[in-house]
Design a protein around this nucleic acid. Structure first.
Length: 355
DNA sequence: GACACGTGGGC
DNA sequence: TGCCCAAGTGT
């Protein structure tokens, strides 16, 4: 136990904020919270976490659930592979470990969606293994403590050495959470509150008055912009939705058929081409509905939507994993990316092609 | 090691 | 408004 680790633990025990999974004895629930917290802030996670443990309270429940149920619970959280992998990992535990979350870090890390961070977090918090977590918060605070001269990704070894020196073997979970909480609440990205920091006396950047230089930033990349067109395809009072292939962007979620607009192509032409390519059907394009702007992390889109009338062909899953005709009111029960809800809100109860 | 992979909030 | 940031993992 070093003076530094004592300062972290004292701060943590005094300032500890309440979260539904904090002091939770069940490794499954701690693990679920860590999966949801990847690249996602606490206030966003809380309602999703509570809904999940109410619906799927144990490893066995998640292992026996369907992918659709899991994606519906995750709808709006983003990074949907997390949900698919967590379900697969629970199935692995049911089959190989008798439904018990492994307390051996080597075995635990074999599970789908479990990397260095999740392993260290769950194994330290739930089982007391002295494994340091390295997340975005820890990288930032360590960059400042040690005045690391390059972006933190290039200093993994120094960061790990520093944490290994201080984590101790009596309260590794509290130390890890203390480091993350302190970095989040005090050693903030833009305006660090150094006067409130219990470890400023150990901080190289603070003593040099160069906090603002750290962490050293990587060069940023430009994000491409895509134009997309989709059709709300009517056959009598039903509309057609297709399910995206289960890997890749928004994998396994339902959407309106459509795709990227090609050079020189109009939105209606794009919809006719995409519905033929993806589903093997012919449609006519009717009234324009609206255009939606949506920004993802690595690209942005503008999406035109049109009412369409189904003409000929029997839908086939060519460029998608599934399709179905649904009534307008059934749409609310489906897993849907947020952008498509904005179109859904504009859809009338009855087909615009009815008399 | 670089890139794909979502979404909401802050300023 | 546009850009940055947030409890990472898989390929």
């Amino acid at each position: 136990m070093t003076d530094f680790s004592t300062a972290i633990l004292n701060w943590y025990n005094h300032e500890k904020t309440s979260m539904p999974w904090r002091d939770e004895p069940d490794p499954y629930r701690i693990w679920l919270s860590e999966v949801m917290l990847q690249q996602t802030q606490i206030q966003t996670v809380i309602p999703y976490y509570l809904k999940w443990i109410k619906t799927l309270p144990t490893v066995k429940d998640t292992a026996e659930s369907s992918e659709d149920v899991v994606l519906k619970l995750w709808e709006g959280l983003g990074y949907y592979a997390r949900a698919r992998n967590f379900r697969l990992a629970c199935q692995m535990i049911t089959e190989n470990f008798d439904g018990i979350v492994p307390s051996d870090p080597i075995q635990f890390k074999q599970l789908k969606g479990v990397g260095d961070y999740i392993t260290a977090a769950v194994q330290s918090i739930a089982f007391g293994h002295p494994l340091p977590v390295i997340d975005g918060n820890v990288r930032r605070i360590t960059s400042r403590l040690l005045s690391l001269p390059h972006p933190p990704d290039q200093h993994n070894e120094e960061i790990m050495d520093f944490l290994t020196l201080h984590i101790g073997d009596t309260q590794p979970g509290d130390f890890n959470q203390g480091m993350m909480d302190l970095a989040r609440d005090v050693c903030k990205p833009k305006v660090p509150l150094c006067t409130q920091c219990p470890v400023s006396c150990y901080c190289s950047a603070f003593s040099d008055q160069t906090i603002h230089r750290y962490p050293v930033k990587k060069e940023k990349k430009i994000r491409p912009h895509f134009r997309v067109a989709v059709g709300v395809i009517w056959k009598d009072s039903h509309i057609l939705v297709s399910k995206r292939k289960s890997n890749g962007l928004l994998g396994g979620l339902w959407e309106f058929p459509g795709g990227k607009i090609q050079n020189g192509e109009s939105s209606p032409e794009c919809i006719q081409r995409e519905t033929l390519e993806e589903l093997g059907i012919h449609v006519t394009v009717g009234d324009f509905i609206k255009t939606i702007q949506h920004a993802y992390t690595h690209f942005s889109i503008s999406m035109d939507s049109y009412h369409c009338r189904f003409q000929t062909g029997e839908p086939k899953s060519i460029g998608c994993s599934d399709w179905m005709w649904i009534k307008r009111d059934e749409l609310v029960s489906l897993a849907f990316p947020k952008a498509n809800h904005k179109i859904f809100d504009k859809i009338p109860e009855v087909s615009p092609f009815e008399n």
